[in-house]
Design a protein around this nucleic acid. Sequence first.
DNA 1: CTGAAAGCGCTTACAG
DNA 2: CTGAAAGCGCTTACAG
Lengths: 345, 345
Amino acid sequence: MSQSIVPNVRKRPTIRDVAREAGVSYATVSRVLNGREWVSPEAVRVVREAIARTGYTANPHARSLATGKSGSIAFLLTEPQHLLFEDPNFSVLLRGVAQALSDRELTLILMIASTPEERNRTTAYLSGGHVDGVLLVSPHSGDPLLSHLVQAEVPIVACGRVLGYEQQISSVMADDRSGGRSAVEHLIAMGCTKIATITGPQDTAGGVDRLQGYTDALLAHGIPVEPARIVHGDWGRASGATAARQLLDQDPELDAVFAASDAMAAGALPVLREAGRSVPGDVRVVGFDDSGLAATLDPSLTTVRHPLDRISEEMVRLLTDVINGRTPLSITVPTTLVIRDSSPA
Amino acid sequence: MSQSIVPNVRKRPTIRDVAREAGVSYATVSRVLNGREWVSPEAVRVVREAIARTGYTANPHARSLATGKSGSIAFLLTEPQHLLFEDPNFSVLLRGVAQALSDRELTLILMIASTPEERNRTTAYLSGGHVDGVLLVSPHSGDPLLSHLVQAEVPIVACGRVLGYEQQISSVMADDRSGGRSAVEHLIAMGCTKIATITGPQDTAGGVDRLQGYTDALLAHGIPVEPARIVHGDWGRASGATAARQLLDQDPELDAVFAASDAMAAGALPVLREAGRSVPGDVRVVGFDDSGLAATLDPSLTTVRHPLDRISEEMVRLLTDVINGRTPLSITVPTTLVIRDSSPA
DNA sequence: CTGAAAGCGCTTACAG
DNA sequence: CTGAAAGCGCTTACAG
C-alpha cells in the first residue's frame, strides 16, 4: 500500500535540524537536551518546541561515542541455559531488572554465554568497555570469565555472593541462611523431629547457605544432624523427586522435608504421596523461593519468600554506584516465611 | 588490594593504536577488520598480529555512527508482564532468539513496554532508528504501538500472525490450527465424543486458531460443536482450573478436554480429579505447547508440540532479510502430537 | 547565557 | 593494494 519513493532508510532529524528549526546553535540544543545549567528559559522553550515539531530523538551511538558511556547494561547468564530458563526466579529477576533499568533510561542487553566460544566473545565484548556495567546471574565460583572481568575493571554486580570474589564483586542476595533457619525452626515448632532436607548445588552460595540454615536450626534445638537426612539436588523439579525417593529410602521415619527450592519441593510432593505419606499429615514440607508454583501446588506450599523485586532493584542501584566509582558492597535482604497447607501453623 | 593509580576508565586501544603497532594506515586496519577486498595477505597478517598484541576490540558505537547500523535487535514485550514471564514458552523463545542473534554477532536488547509511559518511550526509541529491527512477541491486534512502528518503517518480525497487519508485518508461527485439529482428531480416534475445549484468548492468533482446529476436527467427523463445551481461558494455569469447573458444570458428561495450553491443562487436571473423574479413565486430556511442564505432570500430558527453537531461528533469519529490504513474509511451522498418559494411544 | 570548534572512533568513497 | 580526508551525530571545554 505505502508507495514510498524515498529509500527505505529515511533521514532522521539530527540535532542540527532542531537547531535550525529553533533558530539557535546546535550546542544550545545539546544543552537543553542534557538539562545542563546556563540555558535561558526562552531557549529551552524554543528548543523543546522544535524537538516536538521535528520528532527528534537523540542518536544514542553518537552520544555514546562522545561521552564514552554506552548507556547500556549487560545482563549476563553463564549458567547452562536450560537450568536458568526453567527457574521461575530468573524471569522475575529479569523483569525487575528491566524495569529498574528502564526507569534510569538504561538499555538492557541480554547476553548468554554457554559455549566456550561464546564465553570468549562475551569476555572480549564486555572487557572492551562497550557496556557501562554487568549484572551477573548465578555466577560459578571457578569461572575464568570472572577473573577476566575483574581484571578489566568492568563494573559488576552479582546476584548472590560470588565465592572467592567477595571483596571485588558487589552482590545482592537474599539472607538464605536465615531463611533456611526460619523454615526449619517452623518445622521444629510444629513438633517435627526427623527433618530431612533437599539441598541446592553446593557450589552456589544459595545452596550452601540454605543448608547452613538447616543445620543452624537443628543444632540450636539440640537435634543431631543426620547425614542420611541430607540429599543434594540441582534446584530442578526432577532432582527433587529423585531426592525424595532417596530420603524415604534412607529414613522412612522422616516427618518433615525442607527443600531448598519450590521446584524441588514440587518434585518431592507426588513421591511422598505415592509412598503413602500424606502431606502435611505424615510429612510436613517446606520449600524456598515462593515462586508462582508454590501457591498452586496441592497442597499449597509453605515456603520462604525472598523479595526478588527488591533484589533486582538493589542490583541496579548498586551497579550505578559502582559505575560511578564507589567501592564494592554486599547487600543482604531479609526473607519471610509464608505458611500454607503443606505445613500449616 | 588493587592499587590503581590510573583513573578507573582505562584508555582502550583504538584503531590508530593498532595501525601504529602494525605500521600501516588505520584505513587498512579498518579494511581487514571488516574483511573487505583489496588487502594484501601481508597486511592482513601484520594487522591481525597487532590486534592480538594490543587486545583491540572495535568500539561498536563508533562503528554504528559511521555505518548507520546499530548491530542490535530489540526483543519487545508488550504483554502484561506477569503473563508473559509465567509462560514457559517465552523463556524458550528468548533463549532461542539470543542464540540466533549471537551467531550473527547481533546484540539483543530487551525492552518491556507495559505502562503507557513506557510504551511511548519505547515507540520513540524504536522509531528513532536506533536498533536495526524489532522482534515482537505476542502482539495485540489493536495496539497503537504497531501502527507507529509500521509507519516509521521499522523492520519487524512478529511471533504469531498480527491480526490486521498480515501484509505489513512479517511473522513466524506454529500451525496452530492444524495442531488443534490433530489433538482433537486423536481424541476422536480414541473414541471420545463429548470433547470440551479450554481456549486461549480470542484476541490472539493462537487462541483463535487452536479453537478453529478444534471445530475443524469435530465437524469433519460429524460431531456437533456445542457452545456448552467451549470455555475461554487466558493461557494461565488458574484460568484452566476455573474453566474446567465451568465445563464440568455445563456438561458433566464430557469425556475429553482439549486445553489450548499446557498450563491450562495443568490447572484442569486437579479439578477433574477432585470432581471424581479419573484421567485418562473417565476424561482424556490433551494440552498444547509441550512445555517443560507437560512431561512432569501426573499423569504426564499428551500435548501438541511446536518447535519453538525453530521458530526463534526463523524469526531472526527473517528479520535480517527484512532489514536488508526484502518484502514481508509469513512463515508457518508444523506441529506434532506428543502422546503421553493423559490420553494414551 | 550562547556560539564556534575540536574530538569521540570508526567507515568509506576518492585519489593514487 | 593503500593512504589522506571527510563525515557519522553528538558533547564539552573555550571564548566570548
